[in-house]
Design a protein around this nucleic acid. Structure first.
Lengths: 213, 213
DNA sequence: TAATTTGTTGACCTTTCGGTTAACAAGTTT
DNA sequence: AAACTTGTTAACCGAAAGGTCAACAAATTA
């Protein structure tokens, strides 16, 4: 009755999934206002009324989409201790962030659009998740600084610098590509970006780029 | 007949100005899709038909708004030579960028929204203005690097790093403020941001923060 | 299998969208 | 002041927006 799902529950999950995927795609492409419920329904290949059966309003659907992607966006820097080498940890984190941004630029842009709009739905997420997470990371950074392992910088701004420089390649892709005179990123670009960004940030806090990874 | 304006020309300029200001405000607040022509008309306190008399379509108005703000956004780094001290020049540039971002966060966000949407209107601007400008700056940076004045980094990525870290405080203001547990930026925040960002970027390319400014 | 819950969907609702039109007012030119 | 150009604006247009509803189909439960 709840563990082994019956036909209805299967269909329910399948349809909700289809709709969420379509909504994610369209919100990411066109933004909240630019994507319409009928476009989403068409993309999911279900009638519009069905979309509104599962998600009671556009807001509700948008929130569900954000909930789903927000988890992906805050990976990294778990299980790190003061004993670890900050150069290696930060390098890996930056590399991961750039990989995520370039592999899922649309999700990054959806996230960015939401924050630019004033983060009406993510505000509470920032308060309840990001802020406590940052407190831990701050303690970690201060530990490294006190141990003389890295220069003293405000950990908040260091994190902002990492986030901004990495996400930039997804959010401002349209500008970056024109400037670089490219149609799309290649693997070699990802390496160069990782290299340049890591070099600036790591040197920026008095660390040396680790050899290879 | 064209130097000293008659009544019609005065009214024309005044109304176009009112509408442009209202459009700028609303596009910045709500984005292209989020702002409607009637909202803009209401804000400008003119009938909607009047808005469409001066600007033949929403696209046309949006373009006019972008044209007006784009000039503001590309200041700095003019009249700089290889003889100048890169630490001072870059520090001033970063400081200016942060000042601009925090004083005009809405313009920064409007710019960001446009680029996130794929820069349909700014693409040609990037091609015709930003790219040549960057070429000059690239030469300057390489000059400094060859003279041993700063570390070797790809100038493109260095510029991206400066733009991203500075604009972040405007575009992602909603997130930054929650994390910093503030309602709005204070003067002291601007100083701290300038300090932290400059420190990371300058050290990142092997430069020392100049004392004071 | 009868009764009931849950899912499906076309038709429809109101509101708002970007945009047009046409009649009129105001200014400018002759 | 007549002729003409330019600016103003209420009324209106079709399309599309988000959302509701009611009739029906399909499972599930009793």
């Amino acid at each position: 009755m709840s563990l082994n799902l019956n036909k209805k529950e299967v269909a329910r999950n399948k349809n909700k999934g289809l709709i969420l995927a379509a909504a994610e795609k369209l919100f990411a492409q066109a933004g909240y206002d630019g994507a319409s419920m009928s476009m989403i329904a068409r993309e999911a290949e279900v009638p519009k009324a069905n979309v509104l059966y599962y998600f009671k309003s556009k807001d509700n659907l948008y929130e569900a989409v954000l909930d789903r992607i927000v988890g992906v966006w805050n990976l990294g820097l778990e299980n790190v201790t003061i004993e670890d080498d900050p150069a290696i940890i930060l390098y890996r984190y930056i590399k991961l962030k750039i990989k995520l941004a370039i592999e899922n630029p649309k999700l990054s842009r959806l996230f960015a659009s939401e924050v630019i709009r004033g983060a009406p739905y993510l505000q509470s997420y920032f308060r309840n998740n990001t802020r406590p997470w940052i407190k831990e990371v701050t303690a970690l950074f201060y530990g490294w600084m006190d141990a003389g392992k890295m220069n003293k910088v405000d950990p908040n701004h260091l994190l902002f610098a990492i986030w901004s420089t990495t996400q930039y390649y997804a959010d401002f892709q349209a500008e970056v590509l024109v400037v670089l005179n490219k149609l799309e990123y290649e693997d070699s670009d990802v390496d160069e970006i990782t290299q340049s960004v890591s070099q600036i940030i790591l040197n920026g806090v008095g660390l040396k780029l680790p050899e290879l990874d």
